[in-house]
Design a protein around this nucleic acid. Structure first.
Lengths: 261, 261
DNA sequence: TGTCCTTATTGATATAGATTAAGTTTACTT
DNA sequence: AAGTAAACTTAATCTATATCAATAAGGACA
């Protein structure tokens, strides 16, 4: 309780109330959906599992109540217990530097897995919080390991998920160590685009769930630079931005910017 | 053939010759050492395995002939087949940007695992080459998976190794996105220091196996800046550098530089 | 509906590190 | 041992992005 000044603490007092009832936003935040019937089962953990295997996975997955904007999944140096799959909404991971200001280390969209940085040290290396009203599947890691041992497909797939995370992190390493502000931004937007495409959302029009400041921290740039680059890309006719709404007008040109470096 | 101007290509022509016979440099590069008797078995894959389990691991490990400086373990977009454990010497991973210049994505010292970035896409995402005369244990991934399925300890440990890689990559993300040149350099030296300590080498005096340029590419800085920072740290009395030889004179002060940010 | 607070934009200026340019030292090669 | 190439250092200058400063526009809440 001492760590927290987040809204979930307040919420903690009315545990059984299922929080905001007016979340009748249809299915996306629905708590009682099984892996088998989840629309993300083609990209989340169930991929490559048979029907009966998915059923076994289902049994260890905990479907918590939805998270409100700013609620924390876990905090830096909390004991590692679970990995999480985003069902709907989005999250950011960040660390706080000693001088107090945060640095965003990742964004997570539906179907993506959160928390693997805690596996080896048994403590989470960052804090992660919801960027908007979101829902999550929690997968206790001990049980995931046990089940992976029984299901070679699951073991194989989880190795692949982790390997993918490693490959992605290395791309970001390259991005941060040698790309200009404009190249980083273009690459970031294209990355979001294909991640939205994966979940059958428009790859050319989407809402940014995070602030300019979040993006800046992630890309190693200041908010002011982010803002300037966004307007510059807009002037060039490559994107249209209106507050959190982004439209990619010329994907090829954006790609050319990234490839140039 | 068009990509290559490295010594391993030349070597490729005399395949069966076992390369340099005068490698009688005693044990470190000795090819015929088992996991059970390897001095790295406390930090490499065998950790946490029982005697008989180590024996099973032994059977799938391929101990290739030593690699000469510049020889490649694999190249970017080669088919992923194995992960590699460094037995002696050191390696660097790098990607080439379209304009031709490389960007180093990692350095690997004895006991560390190379190649996990290829697991998900089935292709290596980078090239990796030896920085000096080095030896390697190759672990065919299909067999590692099969054995992990049989040995829960091994599965657990490999998850941990991958999780550790992810956590490390995120630290570098933070480093690159918000640290100054001096902070990055101090952090890099301290990192090397503790990695050498892990393999029972001096944490305060060591030889850098890589060039200034390699370090610069890794830290997102130019060679010139690297050189300047090294001399600056030396003037301040925090380190002593003589070509590739480094001595850390004031670890606490180096830590203070890193923590400041 | 208005007030407050957070987020975003834009401009002016400062600066860390890149770039350019030599020059020097180290280390291969023959 | 000499000759050449690679690696490293140092200095002068330039530039991309940070910093500082001010304003504007949303969005949450009373």
């Amino acid at each position: 309780m001492n760590t927290g000044n987040n809204s979930s603490d307040a919420e903690g007092m009315k545990i059984p109330l299922q929080a905001n009832p007016p979340v009748a936003k249809v299915c996306p935040h629905n708590v009682n959906i099984s892996c088998a019937s989840c629309r993300l089962n083609e990209l989340c953990l169930p991929i490559a599992l048979s029907k009966s295997e998915v059923h076994q996975l289902d049994e260890i997955v905990e479907r918590n109540r939805p998270y409100k904007k700013g609620d924390h999944l876990y905090r830096q140096s909390d004991e590692f217990k679970s990995v999480y799959a985003v069902r709907s909404g989005s999250f950011k991971s960040y660390v706080l530097s000693d001088n107090g200001q945060g640095r965003v280390t990742g964004f997570f969209l539906p179907g993506e897995i959160i928390g693997m940085d805690g596996i080896s040290s048994k403590k989470y290396a960052n804090s992660t919080s919801a960027l908007e009203h979101s829902s999550i599947c929690e997968i206790p890691f001990v049980q995931l390991e046990r089940l992976s041992h029984q299901l070679p497909n699951l073991q194989h797939h989880f190795f692949a998920i982790m390997g993918n995370e490693i490959a992605k992190d290395q791309q970001i390493h390259t991005l941060l160590s040698s790309y200009t502000a404009e190249e980083r931004t273009a690459s970031f937007l294209l990355g979001l685009s294909s991640r939205y495409a994966r979940v059958s959302l428009s790859p050319t029009r989407f809402l940014l769930p995070m602030t300019r400041s979040d993006i800046g921290e992630y890309l190693g740039l200041t908010v002011e630079t982010m803002s300037r680059i966004f307007t510059a890309l807009q002037r060039k006719g490559l994107i249209a931005v209106n507050n959190r709404e982004v439209e990619l007008l010329d994907i090829e040109a954006l790609r050319a910017i990234v490839t140039a470096s």
